[in-house]
Structure formats: structure tokens, C-alpha cells
Amino acid sequence: MTQSLDITLFWWALMGFGLTSVVHIIFLTANRKIIGSVATATMGAAFLVLSAAIAVRTGKIGHLPVTNGFEFMTIFAWSAALFYFIFFVLFKQYAVGAFIAPVVFMLIVSASLLPKESNAQLVPALQSYWLQIHVTLAAISEAAFGVAFAANCMFLIKKLLSSGSFNSRFPSFERLDLVSHKAIIIGYPLFTVGALFAGAIWAEEAWGTFWGWDPKEVCSLIVWLIYTLYFHLRLRGWRGGKSAVISMIGFASAVLTFFSNMFLGGLHAYT
């Protein structure tokens, strides 16, 4: 059976993200600017190929591919790659990208493990423009949390490493804290409006209730509560390591939320 073009492009993108992750790690060890440039260029190429894969699939099924686990995870990875460039422009540091690239790679590998059939015909409940708004914003916001997670990992690794030349290649603690905080500042409003409120409005239209304590709804609420806690703890002076741990718990909850309908069932169990 021949493979469709979108899936072929997807596999190319996966290899591209794998390659860029390796180049980024080499950059961390070698600390040569030229390697950093190659790493960013390969990331750009992989991002473009994945964008093409999403565009081809959109054309094939007639709507944004956000209706099953594979498609959501692909948009998730694409958004995380987009944030790589946003943060590269903001901070101009290859080292930050060195931690975002493996996160993108892990996300796209997770997508590759899921069934890839496309749903041209949606079940009646999903035939709504709210699907695109709700799922896309949820994916973008969770990708922002993923970027924060990458910065948090970098922060904790830097903390664990004793001072040395390798450690010095990492951005400063303050900058890593700022990268994480900025990513959450982007992600939190998108998550609140897209994942929670757009979802509630759509639920009211489709199921007749804004909020039904469905397992996935509660998991999303937990994610929101954790990041709300994160901001309030920062008002109490929490920075650095403690703040990073809360952010990491938040991202872990976001990933669990994605998988929750698979093992907890509920109204979101379409795929």
C-alpha cells in the first residue's frame, strides 16, 4: 500500500527533528557558533516539512487535522517548534533551543506511535467550528508549557552540574527562569480561553452543559489550577528551582490530560 504524501512528509519531519536534536546536543558539547547555526537551520527545515505535512492533510480532509490523537500530537509538536523560533528571536541563544528541540522530537515521536488514519467525515458532535478553535488553542498553549518545561529541565540540570565549562554554556539561572516564565505567560491565557472557555462554550452548544465534570474537563481544570498556583506562588517570591518544579508538574498534568480520555473515558473519548 502506498503511503499518502502527508504521512511521507511527517516521517521526513520526524527525521529532521531527530537530526536537529543531535546537532543541538553537539552544539552544547562543542560550543561552536557555526554548529548552533546548523542546528537552527535544520530545525527550520524540519519545521517547514511538518508545516507542509499539516497543509497537505488539511487539504485532503477538508478541515484542520485536530480530530484524533495523532493529529493533535502533530499540531502540538508543530506549535512547540514554532515557539523554538519565537524564543530564538526573543533571546538569541542557541542553548535554549538545545532543550526545546528534544522536547519537539519527543512529541513527534509520540505522535508517530498513534494511529494515523484521517477522519474526513467527523462524528456529529465534532462538526463545529469550535473544534478548530478549542483544540488548536489547547495544542498551542500546551506547547508553550512544553517550552517552559524544557527551560525548567535545563535549569535543574544546570543546578545539578557542578560548575565547569559545560555548565557555563547554559544560559544563566535568571534567564532560564525568564524563558520558562515567558512561555507560561504566553500559554496560560491561551489555555484559559482556548482549552477551558472555548471548550465550555462548545460543550454548552453540543451537550447542553458548560461544565459536566467529565474526566478530561477535570484534568484541564487541574492543569489550570497548577499554573494559577504557579503565578500566585511567584507573588510570594517563589523563583528559580521551586518555580521550575511547579511548572514541570503543570506540564506533566497537561500531557496526562491529553491521554486521559484514552484510559478514563468520558465525553471526550471520540478517538
Partner: peptide, 8 residues
């Protein structure tokens, strides 16, 4: 957060 987690 914790009680919602129990509910899940």
C-alpha cells in the same frame, strides 16, 4: 487541585 485529582 488535590481533591480534583482524587476525583479523576
Amino acid at each position: 487541585t488535590l481533591s480534583s485529582l482524587v476525583g479523576v
